[in-house]
Amino acid sequence: MRTRTVQDEAIDALVTPVAAALDMEIVRIRVKSGKKQTVQIMAENSDGTMDVEHCAKLSRALSDVLEEQDPISGEYNLEVSSPGIDRPLTAPAHFERWAGFKAKLELDRLVEGRKKFTGMLAGFEDNSVLIDLPNEDETALIPFEWIADAKLVMTDELIKADLATRQPSDNSGDTP
Score class of each variant (00 low, 15 high):
Arg2Asn: 13
Glu9Met: 13
Ala10Tyr: 00
Ile11Ser: 00
Leu14Asp: 11
Pro17Glu: 12
Val18Lys: 09
Ala20Thr: 15
Leu22Arg: 11
Met24Glu: 04
Gly34Thr: 14
Lys35Gly: 14
Lys35Cys: 00
Met42Leu: 15
Ala43Phe: 05
Ala43Tyr: 02
Ala43Asn: 07
Asn45Thr: 08
Asp47Val: 02
Met50Trp: 02
Met50Gly: 04
Asp51Asn: 15
Asp64Leu: 11
Asp64Ser: 10
Glu67Asp: 15
Gly74Pro: 09
Asn77Ser: 14
Val80Pro: 08
Pro83Val: 14
Ile85Thr: 13
Arg87Asn: 01
Pro88Glu: 13
Leu89Cys: 05
Thr90Val: 05
Pro92Ile: 13
Pro92Thr: 13
Ala99His: 08
Phe101Gln: 03
Phe101His: 10
Lys104His: 04
Leu105Trp: 03
Asp108Pro: 04
Lys115Gln: 14
Thr118Gln: 15
Gly123Asp: 00
Phe124Thr: 02
Ser128Leu: 06
Ser128Ile: 03
Leu130Ala: 07
Asn135Ile: 00
Ala140Ile: 06
Ala140His: 07
Leu141Gln: 12
Leu141Thr: 03
Glu145Val: 11
Ile147Pro: 04
Ile147His: 07
Ala148Asp: 14
Asp149Met: 08
Lys151Gly: 12
Lys151Glu: 07
Val153Arg: 10
Val153Met: 12
Val153Ser: 07
Ala161Arg: 13
Pro168Arg: 02
Thr175Gly: 00
